[in-house]
Design a protein around this nucleic acid. Structure first.
Lengths: 113, 113
DNA sequence: GCACTATATTCCTTAAAAAGAATATATAAG
DNA sequence: CTTATATATTCTTTTTAAGGAATATAGTGC
C-alpha cells in the first residue's frame, strides 16, 4: 500500500507529470527540464527526487550533468502499468503538446551556461 | 491534465484506496464503510465525495441510505484503466486482505442503529 | 406536525506538501 | 589549489489537504 501511495502522490503534481511526458521523448538534464518548465532549479531537483523515489524515473551522471530518463518500471507493479499508459494519456493536452514540440529545440550547451 | 491530477490525488490516500478495494466486492453504504474502516462518519463522507468527484465511485439513494459502488470509469480515460488494474493491485496487501475477509460479516441492520 | 436516523456540510485546527532563498556538494578546467 | 558550473540539500514560509467537533439536510415512521 505504501508504495502505491508514493506512486500516486508523485503523479499528483502537474509539473511532475509534465516531466514524465517530456522524458518519454528524450533523456534530459536538470537544466533542460528547468528551461522547458520555467521553474527554479531547486524546484526541479526536488520534483525529480520525488519521481525517482516513486520508481518512475532514473538518473545517470555524465560529468557535471545528471541525465534523467524514464525508469524501466520494475520497482513496483504500478509503475510499469502507469508508465505504459502514460505513453498515450495526456497527449491531447495542449500544454503538454506545446512542451513536446519544443523539446527538439532545447540545446544543453546554450541552456547551461 | 486537471482531471488526471484529480484522479491521482483521490488515489493518494490509503483510506480511499481501501474503500475502492472493498467496493470491488460489494456495494456499501456509509455506515458499513465507517464500521469497516473504523473512521468517523463525516470523514467517510468526505473521502467518498473526493472519490466521486474523481469519477471513481458513484452513489445511489435508497431511502435513508446511500449506496456507493464503483463507477463504470467512463468519466475519463484514466479512471477506467486504473479501476481495472486495481482489481489485481494490492490484493496481497495484508491490511486489504483482512478488510475483504470481513466484508461478508458486515450487517447493515446491526451497524446502522 | 414531531422524533429519529443516515448522511452531508461547515468551521476550525492540525499535519503535510510545495515554493523560495540561501547554501552545500561535486566535477571540470585552468 | 582556485574558479566556475550543474545539481542537491537545507531551512523557512506559504499553501494545501486531512481530522474532528458541531451542525445541517433529508428521508422515515409515528
Amino acid at each position: 500500500m505504501k508504495d502505491f501511495i508514493i506512486v500516486m502522490k508523485a503523479l499528483s503534481d502537474p509539473n511532475r507529470v509534465k516531466i514524465i511526458k517530456m522524458l518519454q521523448h528524450k533523456s534530459m538534464c536538470v537544466c533542460e527540464i528547468k528551461a522547458a518548465l520555467k521553474l527554479p532549479q531547486p524546484s526541479v531537483s526536488k520534483h525529480l527526487k520525488i519521481l525517482e523515489k516513486a520508481g518512475l524515473v532514473s538518473s545517470q551522471k555524465d560529468g557535471l550533468w545528471v541525465n534523467y530518463h524514464l525508469s524501466n518500471g520494475r520497482s513496483t507493479p504500478y509503475t510499469a502499468t502507469i508508465l505504459e499508459n502514460l505513453k498515450h494519456w495526456l497527449n491531447d493536452d495542449s500544454e503538454i503538446a506545446r512542451l513536446i514540440e519544443k523539446i527538439p529545440f532545447l540545446n544543453r550547451k546554450e541552456l547551461c551556461s
